[in-house]
Structures are given as structure tokens and as C-alpha cells.
Amino acid sequence: MLDNKDKKIIAALSEGLPLTLRPYQALADELGISEEELFSRIKKLKEKGIIRRLGGTIRHDQAGIKGNVMVAWIVPQERLNEVGQKCAGFPFITHCYVRETAPDWPYNFYTMIHAKSEDECLNLVKKLTEELALKDYELLFTKKEIVRRMRRYFSEEI
């Protein structure tokens, strides 16, 4: 069970770290705790699996990454875990998902690929088809980036 301090930490982390030389110290100061306590609590939340990871979000377009494609694959059910593990290991794949199929949409596995250009994306997909021994897929290139907001947790409770 989470106590009020843990909820405040999670709420603060979901807002993003302050842009300062010591972001965790600034966050701890804002929460009225020491930096050591903040690190200790974050570590415990991670050990319990409540927090999976802390990471940054890159605006691909502004970073010069112009090739973005969601690849919808048909993967045999018995190969989903194997293919998912392999895809999760490629540095150019940022997301892997398994989804339900539909009568008019047989694709059950999705990967998001980022590269410098659409041509580079196509070359990476070609490499994947050979390495994964998969041939049935659909390319869904990004038409427009919609800036996502981070999910805020517990902010309404505290």
C-alpha cells in the first residue's frame, strides 16, 4: 500500500523533473524530504514494481528523426514471445505491442520504428523481415506528431 509521501513522489515524478543541475534535490526540497529519502523511496517503489523505470521523452521531429513507422505484423501465436523479445532488443524499436485481431485486420503484433528518414525505416523493416522470418506486415507511417502529455498520478488525491 502506498502512503501519502509515496503518492506525492509519484505525482511529482509524473510532472517531470525540474531542469536544474540537481533535479532530485530540487524535487526533494519541494516535497519537504531529504534527497536520500527521495532516492530510497523511489528505489523501493521500483523494487515493488510500482515504478518500472524513469526516462525522458524525446520530441522525434525536433531531434531530427524524420522516419517514424508503426509496423503491424502477423505473428503466429506460438512465436509472439520470441518475436517480442527479439524486437525489444533492437535500439531502433521503441515500442512493441500485442493486440487483438479483427475480422478485417489480421495484425496482432506492433512495433514502432524510428530512423533518420522513411527510407531508413524501410531498410530496417526489410532487415527485420529477414531476421524474424516474417513476411506479412503493414506499414503505418507517421503523418503528424501529436504531442502527448504525461499521465498524472495521484495529483487529485493529494
Rank of each mutant, 00 (worst) to 15 (best):
K143H: 11
E120W: 01
L45K: 08
I50R: 03
N108T: 08
K116Y: 09
K116D: 11
M112Q: 10
Y153R: 02
S117R: 03
F154C: 05
F109R: 00
N81F: 07
F90I: 08
Y153V: 02
M112T: 10
D61C: 04
E145C: 00
V98P: 02
T142I: 09
G89R: 06
N81L: 09
Y137S: 01
R53A: 07
T111D: 04
L139R: 15
I93L: 13
D136G: 05
L139G: 08
G64M: 01
R52N: 10
S155K: 15
K66N: 12
G89P: 06
L124R: 11
V69G: 00
A102V: 08
L122G: 03
D61R: 11
V147T: 05
F92Y: 10
L140T: 05
D136S: 13
R52V: 10
E118W: 03
H60T: 10
I113N: 08
D104R: 11
N68R: 13
K48D: 05
L80G: 00
L122A: 11
P106N: 03
A102H: 13
L54H: 10
Y97N: 09
F92C: 00
G84P: 08
G84R: 08
T129W: 04
L140Q: 06
M70H: 06
L134M: 10
G49E: 03
I93N: 08
T129Q: 10
K44S: 02
A133N: 14
K135R: 12
E47H: 00
